[in-house]
Simulated scan of single mutants.
Amino acid sequence: MAILVDSATKVICQGFTGRQASYHMERAIAYGTQVVGGVVPGKGGSRHLGLPVFDRVADAVAATGATASAVFVPPASAAEAIIEAIDAELPLIVCVTERIPVLDMVRVKRRLEGSASRLIGPNSQGILNPGRCKIGVMPAHLERPGRVGIVSRSASLTSEVVEQVSAQRLGQSTSVGIGGDPVHGLGFVDCLELFFRDPDTDCVVLLGEIGGSEEEEAAAFLRSQRVPKPVVAYVAGLAAPTERRMGHAGTVNVFGQGGAAEKIESLRGAGVTVAESVAEIGQTVRQALKAA
């Protein structure tokens, strides 16, 4: 079992015939992901990578029974693509697009309220259930099936920690990249709730960074209840200068708010085991599992 995706997940791709979409969807198919088609307005009725192409998401869902969409649409059009997928009632939408305007994402967030859809991203590395389903741009040679759930704001950190957890011979249940933009879909709290309910996840790794309030919200959530599984965290950016954006749009420490030290203190106060350095995350996970 896993969260959000498994071997039965049927995936379509919005922006299917684009260069990046073609590259990553071809690899998803090779991985074993059940990709069933794509959506490109004006190209309906054609085929790409041996699969049907549709003009609209609703048409693709009706024809294929798709349950998830990978959004590889340029920033100016990405919000409309996500909204189209929401209107088609797709249960899961994974958006890898970077630099979607913030006001566009505000509209998306409003449309998500009360809908049947969950959004991962934008600016997301995607989601990976080892050996069963890969949606997005996560590398697929570092993982191994296991019982450690990973949720991360950082793509590079995700890859590093997947490799460390695999090297510890623990493996992952699911890895989720929630994305690095300030306005996005699923957050740390949403993923913690899902992992806590998943009987095949024994420990959760939370990978944070400066900016925003995701880590503080996760800490408040953990303090509000009896935590059923060990949570290990790492927060990047202790040396980041104030008011300087580091990497992507969500990583900015403004006037002393959203700093790494404050986030670490908040998480430790909620009973989270915080790794001292990137190199120690895998070992810290093993120790947390042993102590549980």
Rank of each mutant, 00 (worst) to 15 (best):
A63M: 07
S69D: 08
F72E: 10
F72A: 12
V73H: 14
P74F: 14
A78M: 14
A81E: 12
I83D: 03
I86K: 09
I86G: 08
D87C: 01
P91W: 00
L92C: 06
V94W: 04
V94Y: 04
V96F: 13
T97N: 10
T97M: 11
R99E: 13
L103D: 14
D104L: 00
V106G: 03
V106R: 13
V106D: 09
V108N: 13
R111A: 12
L112R: 03
S115H: 03
S117P: 07
R118W: 01
L119N: 01
I120L: 04
P122T: 11
G126D: 01
G126Q: 08
I127T: 10
N129G: 03
N129Y: 02
G131T: 01
G131W: 07
C133S: 11
K134I: 02
I135S: 02
M138T: 02
H141Y: 15
H141M: 11
L142Y: 12
L142D: 08
L142E: 10
E143G: 00
E143M: 01
G146D: 02
I150M: 05
S156V: 05
L157S: 10
V161K: 05
E163V: 00
E163Y: 08
Q164K: 02
Q164N: 06
V165G: 09
S166F: 05
A167S: 15
Q168K: 11
R169F: 08
S173H: 07
S173T: 15
G177K: 06
G177R: 06
G177M: 11
